[in-house]
Simulated scan of single mutants.
Amino acid sequence: MTDFSSIAGKVVVITGGARGIGLATATALQALGAKIAIGDIDETTVKESGAARGFDLYDRLDVTDQASFESFLDEVERRLGPIDVLINNAGIMPTGKLVDEPDQVTRRILDINVYGVILGSKLAVARMLPRGRGQVINIASLAGETHIPGLATYNASKHAVLGFTDTLREEYRDTGVRFSSVLPTLTKTELGSGVTAPKLLRPAEPEEIADAIAKLIVAPKSKVRVTAVAGAIAQVVGLLPEAVGDYIGRALGAQNAFLDEVDTQARKAYEARVRGDSE
């Protein structure tokens, strides 16, 4: 059984913390004694979520804006102390074929999923290096180790997060600052609404991702895949000849899971929000 006592008192910042994996993680880490700061572009929801759970700090955060990110981290350190852990969780997943994806949406995915992670990591590491300690945990996806029709730009963004995090892990080896990637399968959050998981791959609960993150804080390692079954399948398929791997993906239903089989009505509100249609 994992001893989580070392989490008590740590200052943890979570982006995209108003809902889903971010909120589940904040809730779990708070229960383990961490000081929690959540930020989210959705100011109303982040303040409602933060107030309802009594988090230490909760406010609007635009991860694509340097001034917003820097001032948020400044406020965290002013009120809670030096940041021990930054969890770059903010991300969006619009679905559909590439040729139907407006350039505005393409840029939005890359700005949030890639630039937001790079910016947050850069700002956090600059604070952590002089102290000789700290941890950056980037929420990637099993989509970052495979290719799923209907998620071309999203896949690209998560491949980027994995490559970026692995590079930082080596670039800052022996500095006391640790870097990890979390690779969830399809998870039961609004992001996964209207999507049916491929065969053999049950959707993860957000609390499972939160538990994996808590374990990473206690015992850092480069990557953790959730669920274990989905992670093992993704790794095995990645080692197979391309034609065989693609055949297995089609047999499991991955070919259409994010295209023809999406429940567009169930997903309508999420797609409108992340595409910026509701702003």
Rank of each mutant, 00 (worst) to 15 (best):
K158P: 03
A152M: 13
G116A: 12
G176N: 09
S157H: 02
L151R: 06
L142D: 00
D174H: 13
A124M: 08
D111H: 08
P149W: 09
K122L: 14
L129V: 10
R131E: 06
N138H: 02
V136D: 11
R133D: 01
I137Q: 00
G134R: 07
G176P: 04
N155E: 02
E145V: 14
A140V: 03
I139E: 00
H159I: 10
F164H: 14
I139L: 14
R173K: 15
L123A: 11
L162Q: 07
L142Y: 02
L142M: 13
A124R: 02
R169D: 15
I118R: 03
S180P: 02
D174L: 05
V177I: 04
R133L: 04
K122E: 12
H159N: 05
L168I: 06
H159F: 15
T175G: 05
E170F: 10
A152E: 12
H159A: 11
K158C: 08
R178Y: 13
R127N: 10
G150C: 07
G132V: 06
A160H: 07
D166P: 02
A140L: 01
I137M: 00
P149D: 11
L162M: 13
A126M: 08
F164W: 15
T146K: 06
V125Y: 01
V125E: 01
L123E: 09
R173N: 07
F179W: 04
V125R: 04
A156V: 11
G120E: 03
R127M: 08
V117C: 07
L151F: 01
R178V: 13
K158E: 01
D174K: 07
Q135T: 11
A126I: 00
G116K: 05
R133T: 14
G176R: 08
L119Q: 09
K158A: 10
R133H: 12
N155F: 01
D166E: 15
H147I: 14
E170D: 14
H147E: 13
R131Y: 10
R169G: 14
V177G: 05
A126V: 00
S121N: 08
A140F: 01
R173Q: 14
V117M: 09
V136R: 05
E145W: 11
